[in-house]
């Protein structure tokens, strides 16, 4: 059974992520203990709320160092929504706050002529994903693969590299399409991290 550990930063709502991985047959644990994250097989960094508050929540418990260590060791990591953005270098939502810097990109707000926040389903490749965001990154950084969606111009839907998957949308709320994406992350990231 795949053991999935979900980081509880105190500001993210983890119930939907838990329910989703439980449906997929995983053994799910939510934790606020960085040691449990360090030793986990699969780690999920969910997130809602502001970039600055998210970084503070990670730093106050020492999650920031553990996530970077795991990334450098090539271990499975899934970032969702703000969880993707926190992996980047900075965000215009919280000027002067440095992100984890694993993705060389800065996060910016959607242009004012489109509906913000973006609440709803947007096309990603052959399917649709559920978004709930006001900020995004605009292009796929060097060294990463992924796909784009469009909301007042192209923006990053998800990025992957090695055992890391980072989604701007909520795969746990994106129906059967989202569940298939998570199943393939579990499988692929396990293979990659064992190499």
């Amino acid at each position: 059974m795949n053991r999935v550990v979900i980081i509880d930063t105190g500001i993210a709502n983890t119930a939907s992520v838990c329910a989703c991985f439980t449906r997929l047959g995983c053994d799910v644990m939510v934790t606020d203990d960085p040691a449990a994250v360090r030793d986990a097989e699969f780690v999920v960094l969910p997130g809602v709320g502001r970039f600055g508050a998210g970084m503070r929540a990670l730093q106050s418990r020492g999650f920031d160092r553990v996530i970077v260590e795991r990334y450098e060791q090539g271990l499975p990591l899934l970032g969702i929504c703000l969880g993707l953005q926190l992996l980047c270098t900075s965000s215009t939502e919280s000027e002067g706050v440095a992100g984890l810097g694993l993705i060389d990109a800065s996060v910016t707000e959607f242009p004012c002529e489109v509906r913000t926040p973006q609440h709803g389903w947007n096309r990603v490749g052959d399917g649709y994903a559920y978004y709930s965001n006001s900020y995004r990154i605009e292009s796929i950084p060097a060294g990463w693969s992924g796909e784009l969606s469009d909301h007042g111009g192209p923006f990053v839907a998800y990025l992957q590299r090695g055992a890391t998957l980072a989604c701007q949308f909520h795969p746990e709320l994106s129906g059967a399409w989202g569940e298939r994406l998570l199943v393939s992350w579990l499988k692929r990231s396990q293979e990659v991290s064992r190499c």
Binding site: A15, S16, A19, R23, Y130, E172, G175, A176
Partner: peptide
């Protein structure tokens, strides 16, 4: 409902 639902609630 959450246990069975893979869309937003």
């Amino acid at each position: 409902v959450r246990r069975v639902l893979s869309i937003p609630l």
